[in-house]
Design a protein around this nucleic acid. Structure first.
Length: 677
RNA sequence: GCGUUCAUAGCUCAGCUGGAUAGAGCAACAGCCUUCUAAGCUGUGGGUCGCAGGUUCGAAUCCUGCUGGACGCACCA
């Protein structure tokens, strides 16, 4: 909060206490202050209708009148920062001293070392964010991008607000689908092994689609898949430890890095080599199938990591469902013993209060399900990390699943109170479950509708970004060639472009233009996913994604580049920045636009907080677009070069303030920042 | 059928913990590059905020009903 709002809060709070003997807390007073929709209504306003809840009597207009009359005689207390105070209907409007305001805000940013808006929290929360979580052996599509970028962005936002974040990628590496995959791999004799080596995920996905199709006509395929999955799960549980023992060992480990635990597939590549000849050796035994599964898992993870790296996403831990599968039987037993679960049609279910659909814990053949594994996972994460909050960034189509998961924890907690004896042999389990309540959050998001390529149905992320980058490159090409034609200062860049537009690009060495267009493509794609509120379904439309004008990522990148360029040109004028000057004069023609920019900058922190509270990165997208738009208007309407140095100096700080905030937001939104475009 | 969720300009969306005159971008049309990057800027047109009630001094925002769409609802994840 800036000093202006702060002093206004104290003013309002103090006067109401003195004159009316009504005590309103600092926080409450802050909520009384609103930002008027139009600057002609002032810069802050007090809405009188809120005051009736503190004992003020009468119609809102009358309360406003009363308050206004109380304020007026003591206005001198804030006269230093405020110009005037007005009453308009039910509102009392405060007008800041615009010169001081602008100067103060710009100075604030300049003095923040690029950390403007960042909070150092006194009691940081430990927040787990579970996101992306793709399924093994399936291509990483545009659908997964949504969870990935929302999760990554939220991670950055929470960190920026001073909390400790643990980013977990919970891989879909287990379940009946792997029975299917192994079945397919073992059944079909025409697998192209050289292609498998080149693009394993593609081949695996092909197998998955094929077996799925065959299952429609061949019942034995389905049967075989079930059996193979059961064998896999049995094998994983072969060195049976109890859940209680496992939780005891995890016990609040300090380590932040954690890689998939005992079932980790790391480092197995040399041991397992698949070929046409040895293929069948893997299919005959439990261990062989386990190795197959580990190999598929490893190949997929490698592919995912490559993709994440390319778009700047990283995790603190890769976990897999398989790690929890070992204990899903324990969970089943605990739930049955405590009387929460019951057997129905051979399967184990839980009926949850307030949730209509019964939750399925175990199948009638005894194998585990997603839900039971998720219960184990949540508890072991509590044991490992002792988190204050855990956010699942998963599509809204899984709302029921999370309602069931959270519902079961609520029931367990209730049950612990009532039947504490029944679980006396599980002290760890009890301990972690008892603190779970209220800490789990499902951050859901809408689907991506109508997505299709010109050829097929699924858009792979690679193709998606490639298409956007290509478009960016064309545009970049045109732009720079035009600049070259006019000015001739960019000869180097154009040669650079001519070199790289030819198809033969040296591997690993990307030119600046190439890197730039890739970053623009990535920025366009990511921003497109983060600009709308999570809940709304996104209509996928190539024209929208490939448009770089208006409310887009490239527009923001462009704005930053523009500032960079201008700032470097102004710096060439030898402005003495050791003795900074933040003073602006109301008389200058550009003053009002500078003031508007300063106002927008001043509420950056509010925007970040709101984004965090609502788990909604789009709050920042909207904010950034507004700021960029204000800046571009300024840029277009006023010219700096050619003015007096003393005139330019404070404006140079204003420019870099805008840049600082925009750059910070681009970082928070995972949109690459460009030096120039 | 039950549950969740959404419906705002031709299109894509902001605005939603009730508050001042419902805002952007795209598209359309009319302008602005001898001058700091035109991926930009200026202007024009475009709205019964799905429909009907209710609560309130005040409703796009909250509640109820209806219509329409999306998603989910027992051995997938």
């Amino acid at each position: 909060m800036d000093v202006f709002k702060k002093s206004l809060v104290s003013f309002i709070q103090g006067i109401i206490k003195e004159k009316k003997n009504i005590q309103i807390s600092h926080e409450e007073s802050e909520k009384l202050i609103k930002n008027p929709p139009d600057s002609s209504f002032g810069d802050y306003s007090l809405a009188s209708y809120y005051l009736s809840r503190y004992g003020f009597k009468g119609k809102p207009e009358e309360i406003a009148e009363e308050i206004f009359n109380i304020f007026i005689p003591d206005f001198e207390r804030i006269e230093d920062l405020f110009d005037k105070i007005e009453i308009k209907g039910v509102y009392i409007n405060f007008f800041v001293d615009k010169e001081k305001f602008a100067s103060h805000i710009i100075q604030d940013v300049a003095g923040s070392n690029g950390n403007y808006g960042r909070t150092a929290h006194e009691k940081p929360l430990k927040v787990i964010i579970d996101f992306s979580s793709p399924n093994i052996a399936k291509p990483f599509g545009v659908g997964h991008l949504r969870s990935t970028v929302i999760g990554m962005s939220l991670s950055k936002i929470y960190e920026f607000c001073g909390h400790n974040v643990i980013k977990i990628n919970y891989l879909g590496d287990f379940g009946t689908q792997f029975g299917k995959l192994i079945t397919a791999f073992c059944r079909y004799n025409d697998i192209n092994f050289s292609e498998f080596e080149k693009d394993p995920v593609k081949v695996l996905y092909g197998l998955y689609v094929r077996i799925h199709k065959d299952e429609q006509t061949d019942a034995t395929a389905n049967e075989e898949a079930k059996n193979r999955f059961k064998m896999l799960e049995d094998f994983i549980s072969i060195n049976k430890r109890s859940l209680e023992e496992y939780l005891g060992n995890l016990n609040f480990k300090k380590t932040k890095k954690f890689f998939g635990g005992e079932n980790s597939a790391e480092g197995i590549s040399d041991k397992i080599k698949l070929s046409e000849k040895n293929k069948n050796a893997f299919c005959g035994t439990q261990e062989g199938q386990y190795d197959l599964w580990r190999l598929f898992r490893k190949l997929s993870i490698n592919e995912f990591k490559r993709i994440y790296k390319s778009i700047g996403i990283e995790f603190d831990a890769y976990e897999g469902e398989a790690s929890s599968a070992e204990f899903s039987n324990d969970i089943k037993d605990i739930l049955l013993e405590s009387g929460i679960a019951e057997v129905s049609e051979g399967a184990v279910i839980v009926r949850i209060k307030g949730v209509k659909a019964p939750a399925l814990i175990a199948k009638s053949d005894g194998t585990s399900l997603y839900l039971s594994r998720d219960i184990v996972t949540a508890i072991s994460r509590m044991a490992k990390y002792n988190f204050d909050k855990m956010i699942y960034v998963v599509g809204s189509e899984q709302s029921l699943h999370f309602n069931q998961l959270f519902g079961i924890f609520d029931m367990l907690k209730e049950n612990l109170k009532e039947n504490i004896d029944k679980l006396k042999d599980s002290p760890n389990f009890k301990r972690y479950v008892s603190i779970m309540g209220g800490r789990l959050v499902h951050v859901k998001f809408g689907r991506i509708i109508g997505m299709s390529t010109r050829k097929g149905n699924i858009v792979f992320l690679n193709d998606y970004i490639e298409e956007a980058s290509l478009k960016a490159k064309e545009k970049l090409n045109k732009e720079r060639l035009e600049r070259f034609k006019d000015g001739g200062t960019v000869a180097g860049e154009v040669t650079d472009l001519i070199k790289t537009t030819s198809k033969i690009t040296p591997v690993g060495e990307k030119s600046e233009a190439e890197q730039t267009s890739l970053k623009i493509g990535i920025g366009a794609v990511i921003f497109n996913d983060l600009k709308t509120r999570r809940a709304t379904d996104v209509n996928f439309n190539w024209d929208n994604v490939l448009s770089f004008e208006g409310q887009t990522g490239p527009y923001l990148q462009y704005t930053v580049s523009r500032i960079n360029s201008l700032v470097s040109k102004l710096n060439a004028l030898n402005i003495d920045s050791k003795h900074p000057d933040f003073s602006f004069s109301k008389k200058d023609t550009d003053f009002n636009d500078i003031f508007l920019i300063a106002k927008q900058i001043a509420c950056f922190k509010d925007a970040v907080n709101e984004a965090m509270e609502q788990n909604e990165p789009s709050v920042l997208s909207s904010y950034a677009l507004e700021l960029a738009s204000l800046f571009n208007k300024y840029y277009q309407n006023y010219r700096l070069i050619g003015n007096d140095i003393n005139f330019i100096k404070p404006r140079l700080f204003m420019l870099s303030s805008v840049r600082t905030v925009l750059t910070q937001i681009l970082n928070l939104l995972c949109v690459p920042v460009l030096e120039r475009m």
